[in-house]
Design a binder for these strands. Sequence first.
DNA 1: ATATTTTAACTAATGATATTAGTTTTGAGA
DNA 2: TCTCAAAACTAATATCATTAGTTAAAATAT
Lengths: 189, 189
Amino acid sequence: MSPRAGIDPGAVLRAALEIADSEGAEAITISSVAQRLGIRPPSLYNHVSGLNELRSWVAVHALRQLQDAIVAAAGNKKGEAAILSFADAYIGFVREHPGLYEMIQLAPGPEDREIGEAGDRLVDFVVGLLDDYNLTKEEALHTVRGLRSLIHGFASLERQKGFGLPLDVQDSLNFNLKLILDGLRRRTG
Amino acid sequence: MSPRAGIDPGAVLRAALEIADSEGAEAITISSVAQRLGIRPPSLYNHVSGLNELRSWVAVHALRQLQDAIVAAAGNKKGEAAILSFADAYIGFVREHPGLYEMIQLAPGPEDREIGEAGDRLVDFVVGLLDDYNLTKEEALHTVRGLRSLIHGFASLERQKGFGLPLDVQDSLNFNLKLILDGLRRRTG
DNA sequence: ATATTTTAACTAATGATATTAGTTTTGAGA
DNA sequence: TCTCAAAACTAATATCATTAGTTAAAATAT
């Protein structure tokens, strides 16, 4: 059913992921991926519709990886412990895979429904972690947005070397997470 | 002292800023800027060393604009009121100038010392806003990092349409800012 | 086993892009 | 008015993405 086999969508994705991981997001080009697969650039169009689709694939996969890491880290913890583990896993992912994280940021073109859906799933998951804070639906959503923004902010500022001072980034993040979580606890008794 | 005048570094920067504002950060190219200035692309190299330098100019200028907006918004307020105004100005800038904000994120190559210095100045300014919370030096720095990350996180997630739910973003941000600020207040009495 | 058909590779070509080299022009100052 | 440096130009190279059209191989049908 496929002559000259050996290259399937999975192989294309894998090649792109490897390039993103080793050389950064910008290094993902039709040429570089084709070269890594041992074919000429135009031949890659037999497997993917163009650079945009390729980027979208990478972004979706990177987001799934990030989600998996987060869910695994939270395990069946709840409350503060779960949130702190969540943050740890998030920051760790960005440190380990800066290129992939960059792709998640870059890709969200208007077309990428999958990205949006993955994001929604993550929100639901985090809302679940906040169960025992007895928040209203609205409070819970505000909080999830805040946690996500805080952690994303730390991750992306760290990635772009935004923290010059000799103060541990993890400590700073935990300090602020605790401020928020303690505030929630106080709010609900 | 300059034949065929009319184009100086300021004009180049202005052209690039206009393009970033109207068409987005990616639209800043040697070609587009040259075209807007009415010259051929290679001629632009008489005024700027290349695309990287051009991007760096835009990023530095955008960061200064953002700083000015923030400082103006904070005025001579202090404490919570200052921080809320700060956040407002930050988010407002990103909404008004998404292309410029994008350039701030993009540019920080390792060479850009100016970007780093501008960031440091901003940190000092915000530390000043927190005077009456009576924090230790370290607590203040953790807090500034947190506020910056939270606001940057909100701004950049909003820009990339990361918030799907029909819940006001400004409300979410204020909710979380207040959690943090109330937590600080409690911590110090 | 052979013929057909599908499809993945190819080459060639087009049109952006950035950038360098080398040349011409022009305007400011001697 | 002449000189010269600066700023424009043209020409060329290299790297992108992408499209069109061709060839070849492998799976399938006869």
